[in-house]
Amino acid sequence: MSTPEVTLRQAGDAFVPQGQPVLRRFVRDASAMAGLSIAVLALLAALLAPWLATRDPTATNFGSRFASPSRSHPMGTDNLGRDEFSRILHGARLSLGMAVAGTVGISVVGITLGLVAGMYGRLAETLIMRVADVFLALPTLILALVVVGLLGQGLRNLIITIVLVQWPGYARIVRGMTLKVRERDFVEAARAAGTSRLRIVARHVAPNLVGPVVVLSTLDMGRVLLAVSGLSFLGFGISPPTPEWGAMLADAKIYLDRAPQLLAWPGLSITTMVLAFNLAGDGLRDLLDPHTTDDGPGWQKGRRRRRARAHLSTT
């Protein structure tokens, strides 16, 4: 299909790093900084959850169910008397952990296949890109549902699913960038000098991809988080009692009347984190985007393409 291809190829163009000192610009972008701060803080909180959490997130107390927020339970307690704050914190571990793991997985698979397609001849390229086309011919959530449904529930399967349905987009972009880099003079020169392909990849191509991939991953983190929590909400996530935001929301929906706050905490957590990833991703992209000018309005030329790509397939 041409639509995504055109989009992504353009995206690839824009991703060629410029190397100009633009860090200051990023720091001045308040919303990007806010996003980045929230993202970093939340990831830290998730990492430190065992120490930050005031209670054992799985410890039940049937005597104090649905308690209102108090000093001992900052977010109150849930239907089993468990400390909601500790559950949200530990839930971050899993939800964000899966988002990170999924994104890393997608990046690794996508970069590898994209590089192979870009560097190694027609056969590999045709094969990989045609398969990618087929995967891209299905809305990702629907494909993910089928895969996770058939693989069965569980953390590992959820991550496998996410990687399986999202690698094609990455592979495409990386291939596009690879082709671009390949045409550059220094690569041509290296090839002429008889440098092996693997060496070219390692020396010239891969380093040039690092920046764009970081941006892409940050942006995608939000999308992956939405996908993971969506699948988890539908019941394809982790087994109880391990807290996970999507599943917590699903469990809370029967208490919609009695304790809507139990729905709100995980819901707000997901929303905040996706928002943070999106803001940070936008800001990061500006760093590497030659089209964006310092005083430009929010959604300009280069931006809009990737914002659309990044946001459209979220659930």
Partner: peptide, 11 residues
């Protein structure tokens, strides 16, 4: 948003 879903308490 938070206000919209808060306010519930055990009957």
């Amino acid at each position: 948003l938070a206000a919209a879903c808060g306010g519930g308490s055990d009957s």
